[in-house]
Design a protein around this nucleic acid. Structure first.
Length: 117
RNA sequence: GGACUUCAUUAUAUGACCGCGGGGCUGGAAACAGCCAUGAGGAAAGUCCGAGCAUCACAGAGCAGGGUAGCUGAUAACGUCAGCCGAGGGCGACCUUAGGGCAAGUGCAACAGAGAUAUACCGCAGCGAAAGCUGUAAGGGUGGAAAGGCGAGGUAAGAGCUCACCGGGUUGCAGGAGACUGCAAUGCCAUGUAAACCCUAUCCGAUGCAACACCGAUUGGUGCGGGGGACAAUGCGUCUGCUCGGCGCACCCCGUUGAAAGGUGGCUUGAGCGUAAUGGCGACAUUACGCCUAGAUAGAUGGUCAUACGCGACAGAACUCGGCUUACCGAUGGAGUCCCACC
């Protein structure tokens, strides 16, 4: 139903998450851990995991928002570069809430694009 | 000026650009697009109490289990709040208070100490040549606690033995709505612990919005199991470092599940908030006027930049209220107390 939408889809299923943890390619930085896998379909999908290790509810919200914001900027560039579509799962780490979204954005550009191309 | 006490308020602000949630308006068949205003807290937290609301159960009474524990009031209700009483702390403003009953029963009280609810080790006094006997509990030492405290009289020495003051018990009278207070008489009666069991009084049905209600129905859908088919082709999953290959899913049938799944409502207009007046010491109540203030469902408030300063603490709504408790960088205002200086 969101096929024509420009936006990404949010991953909700627990099955999808565990599948990506198992089979996805992992990219580790100090700010986040990312699991990626190629998928069919017309748009990318995004899932964010913020465990209890990150901190209290405010810190978890903060890291979720930062990652989402960074991904919002990052996603159109990815679409331009390649025709392939991917599933992403980002796992927040304990340092994440203290960072700026630009920092995460640059980390995404640096680490993920190079791996996928 | 310094040191405090108490009650409130506030919780970085402003602008630009890019985004998000639900709502309204406009365009559109729809998808969607554009515009507009709006969008976390004093604790949203812990889930510790009390309610509303919902479903189930229910004649009445009792047991069990649990809560509460000075009095009077406030309240929908409370374990909350207000005022007062008692006790304790502070020079004071003021603060703290788990504040019924060990004179119903049972239990426990280590060590020390002569002795722990009872005693006589050292003492003191009398008698006696002495051993010792008798009287006594002032003093010593141990302990959280040793038969009310302290002083005077009294005595062989002592002791509520007597008396004054203080403390506690009982009875009476007076005051108060009551907790209680005051006075008088009597008389010293006998440890602590009930946040030990327990007793007394009083209150309590259970489960929580993932409650619950509705929508949609056999040509349909969810999950599980079994069989078939394909064994050609395609995709995905799985075993594997890779290939081959096997198995599973996608297809069909049967059995079972019978609303569990999905969607919508519940979901924010409420014991609501603000201002004023009146009543009340106060909690609060009444009246008038004004206001509408998040409703997400993997969960919306964010990002970037700029400016200012003290460089921003604790922390994120999840059915809704009233409280309590805990966390917290600060800032501002009102009222009040004590000390110093000056007049």
């Amino acid at each position: 139903m969101t096929d024509f939408s420009k936006k990404y889809i949010v991953i909700k299923n627990n099955r999808d998450f565990s599948y990506l943890f198992k089979k996805g390619e992992s990219i580790v930085t100090f700010a986040f851990v990312c699991y990626v896998r190629e998928r069919r379909g017309r748009c990318n999908r995004l899932g964010i995991v913020t465990g209890k290790k990150v901190g209290n509810a405010v810190k978890r919200n903060r890291s979720r928002r930062i990652i989402r914001e960074a991904f919002r900027l990052f996603e159109p560039i990815l679409k331009e570069k390649t025709q392939k579509r991917y599933d992403f799962v980002f796992v927040a780490r304990s340092k994440t809430p203290e960072l700026k979204s630009t920092k995460i954005y640059s980390l995404m550009m640096k680490n993920i694009l190079s791996k996928l191309s």
